[in-house]
Design a protein around this nucleic acid. Sequence first.
DNA 1: TCGTCCCGCCACCCT
DNA 2: AGGGTGGCGGGACGA
Length: 373
Amino acid sequence: MLFSPSEAPELSARHHAYSRKQKSLGLLCTNFLNLYSRGATQVIGLDEAASKLGVERRRIYDIVNVLESVGVLARKAKNQYTWKGFDAIPKALRDLKEEGLRENPSNFDNKNNNSVKDNEDNDEDDSDCNPNTGSQNDTSIPNGILKSTTSRFERRKEKSLGLLTQNFVKLFLCANVDVISLDDAAKLLLGDAQSSSVMRTKVRRLYDIANVLSSMELIEKTHTADTRKPAFRWLGLKGKSDQSMGVLPLHESRKRAFGTDVTNICFKRNKIESLVDEGKCQNPKENQIKADQLSTSVGTSNSDPGTYQFGPFAPKVYGFEEKVSQTPDLESLASTYRPEYHNQALRELFVHYMEAWKSWYSEVTEKKPIQIS
DNA sequence: TCGTCCCGCCACCCT
DNA sequence: AGGGTGGCGGGACGA
């Protein structure tokens, strides 16, 4: 039985411990990547992922659509995705760039090009011509930002989160810009909105995409220098000689707090009573510090321009010496900032990270593994 | 106040 | 017909 919030009084009462930060798409993506970047799982079931992460299936769709767009995942079958890993991102980005340049080489030179028109300006005509019955995986459908299509299916696909993600990435890859304002991105990707409400909806999708890409550190949210308007900065490969494109899913965009629980169950808005141990999901600031420090000391890149290492403990040779020398005492840091998880799954996850970290550290420093009690 | 974005309804599409 | 998928926008949260 379904209730609208207004119809379900028991649902409208704010759960006093609820924090939307704990439920953010970026954090969820971080947890998702942490869960599956361990290498053991090749096939990811959506139900399983939703269950493990303690979220609704719908949220998993948001994430996998974006991740699929940058090559991390590939759809295998209904309800199933194949984990391609972070190594697949560079190739996906190259393909996107080639595709973008091939499709509209000139339009990327001018962000305000008027030829960038909104295909949905005439959306309401509800024309029913040529219903497309092709597969949802039909990648042959042009991804062009500027392509004009008419069928209902194509217009639907045109607005899909996955395609929007690809086009968003193309903006950076093909237009040689580091920072693009939220407004410009929305207009370029989705066309000039006819009304503020339409634009608002469009911007929401950009936030969704940006949160996932931010959690992979492909982009970061920032502001334009002049107007201080919200903007996105491309971090990906650019200016890093491909080497520091590593991602630390362990920590999120600076704004977000490090997830304290691999699941988000305890903060289910409106619907879940206060759990026995509320403390286990609290104190995000403290955890933010921990995660930042951890990530700073771990580093994120790889010296081999041809390969990319992602994930929380990706080997980083680039600038490694400096990093190590700047890090006073990794052993004490690790012990000092060792999170105390109450969640068994998260505890195991953390143990895994510690093992990976010890292994990596000993490898790159040619030391014996660190003894972390 | 306004930027941000969670949440879930429900239309669409596939099997 | 039923279930999977995901567009969409209301409205809550946080700065």
